[in-house]
Amino acid sequence: MYLLTGIPAFELTNTFIDAEAIWGKEIRTVHEQMCNSDEVEAVIGLAEAFLNRLVKNSKFGLQGIDKVGAAILNQKRPLSIDTLASDSCLSSRQFLRRFVERTGVGPKLFDKVVRFERAFFMKNAHPHLDWLTIALACGYHDYQHLAKDYKYFTNMTPTGFYELDTKAPERTFGVVEVRQELVF
């Protein structure tokens, strides 16, 4: 969102901002076109066209810091802050400030969320796997490290949350995660 708006992510969190204040009257026109459309595909096409125009006309260029989030998402093991800062050609302090500006959270919390999500989806895609295998495949040191993150994010144990999740409505409708390859 920072690249599209120039507004730091932490300023957009838990606030209400009128879309017209950011994107002008064009957003109202697109919204009206979406409301007058009867087909889902047409609505999606309008949204995609609007977003493509925003990206094409963005005043903010992609910088090294913007590639770090993708690096964290694609890493199997945690990266050090110094390495990430060096890769983005910034000092550690500048890196931390700009990362929070673009994502709304610090890189350590972002990495923690990514690992947790990876473990969550892996267990759903491979229910036969034990938690230790999942923990090691997702970059955790051991099961207790994984359990600590589960407690932090869900206030439950991994097994307790998994059992609760298997009863979720989307599971009843057959929505499941795509199988992920195990990488150690």
Score class of each variant (00 low, 15 high):
residue 128 H to T: 01
residue 82 D to L: 12
residue 143 Y to W: 07
residue 105 V to D: 00
residue 177 E to S: 12
residue 152 Y to W: 13
residue 44 I to E: 00
residue 60 F to I: 15
residue 6 G to F: 05
residue 103 T to I: 04
residue 125 A to K: 05
residue 17 I to S: 11
residue 49 A to D: 09
residue 41 E to C: 10
residue 39 E to D: 06
residue 50 F to V: 04
residue 29 T to C: 10
residue 171 R to N: 03
residue 89 C to M: 13
residue 100 V to R: 01
residue 158 P to Y: 02
residue 78 P to L: 02
residue 168 A to M: 13
residue 69 G to I: 03
residue 105 V to R: 08
residue 170 E to H: 12
residue 135 A to C: 06
residue 35 C to E: 13
residue 167 K to V: 08
residue 130 D to R: 13
residue 80 S to H: 04
residue 94 Q to Y: 04
residue 103 T to V: 04
residue 34 M to C: 11
residue 139 G to Q: 01
residue 23 W to E: 04
residue 114 V to C: 03
residue 56 K to P: 11
residue 139 G to W: 06
residue 14 N to T: 11
residue 43 V to Y: 00
residue 153 F to T: 09
residue 146 L to H: 08
residue 57 N to R: 15
residue 31 H to W: 12
residue 44 I to L: 07
residue 47 A to F: 07
residue 172 T to D: 14
residue 55 V to K: 15
residue 46 L to E: 03
residue 69 G to Q: 10
residue 22 I to A: 05
residue 11 E to M: 12
residue 140 Y to W: 05
residue 153 F to K: 10
residue 108 K to G: 01
residue 12 L to I: 09
residue 120 F to N: 03
residue 182 L to S: 02
residue 97 R to D: 09
residue 159 T to W: 12
residue 48 E to W: 14
residue 151 K to Y: 12
residue 115 R to I: 02
residue 114 V to P: 03
residue 102 R to P: 05
residue 98 R to L: 09
residue 65 I to H: 03
residue 9 A to E: 06
residue 59 K to T: 14
residue 93 R to L: 10
residue 134 I to L: 04
residue 136 L to V: 14
residue 145 H to R: 14
residue 45 G to Y: 01
residue 181 E to K: 09
residue 87 D to F: 06
residue 63 Q to T: 10
residue 56 K to G: 06
residue 40 V to R: 14
residue 95 F to V: 05
residue 61 G to C: 11
residue 184 F to A: 03
residue 7 I to Q: 09
residue 169 P to D: 07
residue 82 D to C: 11
residue 65 I to V: 15
residue 28 R to I: 14
residue 155 N to V: 08
residue 181 E to D: 07
residue 53 R to K: 11
residue 24 G to C: 02
residue 96 L to W: 06
residue 72 I to S: 00
residue 111 D to T: 02
residue 30 V to M: 08
